[in-house]
Design a protein around this nucleic acid. Structure first.
Lengths: 168, 168
DNA sequence: CTCAGTGCAAACCGTTTGCAGAACG
DNA sequence: CGTTCTGCAAACGGTTTGCACTGAG
């Protein structure tokens, strides 16, 4: 109901509720609120983002509850934990995303865009075949300069030994 | 000199010294010790690992100096910062490694192996072409079950909604 | 002498944990 | 009534920072 849920947020919430029931855990208002908020956009949510969005919805949860609910969401495999090197974690839900998308992190403005890498399944299959490794979660993160910053003429601080290394 | 340097550790140290000189920074004994230690193996070093290895070499450096030197090594692009989700960072040197290797992290035993992904350059080129994004650093991390653990019959704790999601 | 580098210890900050009280069945 | 969840606040732990001391030029 109400605000900003994407079309499929409801069904995702239902999946989370099912997971909780299977684990013998109650579906509390707080857990539903965190899940619903996180499912409401394709964004990369920090705990602070979630806290603020929840406050705006009129729900005031303690940080601890948010962290504990995120643990459950990650365990349920509906949500993926991310780390863009900011010193804290971010979270994205998985259901409306295809697997094998890369995160393009702009080192100038911090923006993160997603980019589909269609060869990921084939790469994972090769790893399974050649290394005997059974992949469960893949994270591909590419840092660099986004098109917007590039067009603005922004350049990354030229760090030291760029050329010597690439040549070596 | 002395102990466990790989054949090319010397030349890497020389590159780091060159970087420092170019930045107008002195090549101190501590900086050389940290760099030499890190360059002495293909491993994934934590700050604690480095501290211990340095102590065994007879050098006692403060943590702060290690952290500050690692900053310089990362800036020089001779060393890459890693995060395997352990709650702390790890570091690997870049010179004897090919670019575009994935880190296969075993969720059962914690072991990390490297696996060469030859299509990485092509993927980066496509990202540059189609998204206008200029990649500088790529991190590919794949978590799962390594062959050793698999052969031992270890299985990962079956987390919740595996099937429903993959089907969705 | 001067100035940056070092080492210690304190500060920092995202996250986790302990515990008293609330909520649900 | 008992059990679990919640929220507050304290604890935690890796990393960063402030500052007095050291050491090279």
């Amino acid at each position: 109901m109400s605000t900003t849920a994407t079309p499929s947020a409801d069904s995702q919430l239902r999946l989370f509720a099912r997971f909780l029931r299977e684990e013998g855990l109650p579906v509390t208002a707080q857990r539903a609120a965190v899940a619903e908020t996180l499912f409401s956009s394709e964004g990369h949510w920090s705990v602070e983002d979630l806290e603020n969005a929840l406050r705006e919805r009129g729900e005031k949860l303690g940080k601890a509850t948010i962290y504990r609910t995120l643990d459950l969401l990650v365990k349920s495999r509906l949500v993926e934990e991310l780390d863009f090197g900011e010193g804290f974690k971010r979270y994205e839900h998985r259901l409306t995303r295809r697997m094998g998308h890369a995160h393009l992190v702009c080192q100038a403005c911090g923006k993160v865009e997603e980019f589909q890498i269609d060869e990921m399944p084939a790469i994972e299959a090769r790893i399974a075949r050649e290394a005997g490794f059974r992949p469960t979660r893949t994270r591909l993160q590419i840092r660099g300069l986004c098109s917007t910053c590039r067009e603005k003429g922004v350049t990354l601080p030229q760090q030291g030994l760029l050329c010597p290394i690439e040549v070596a």
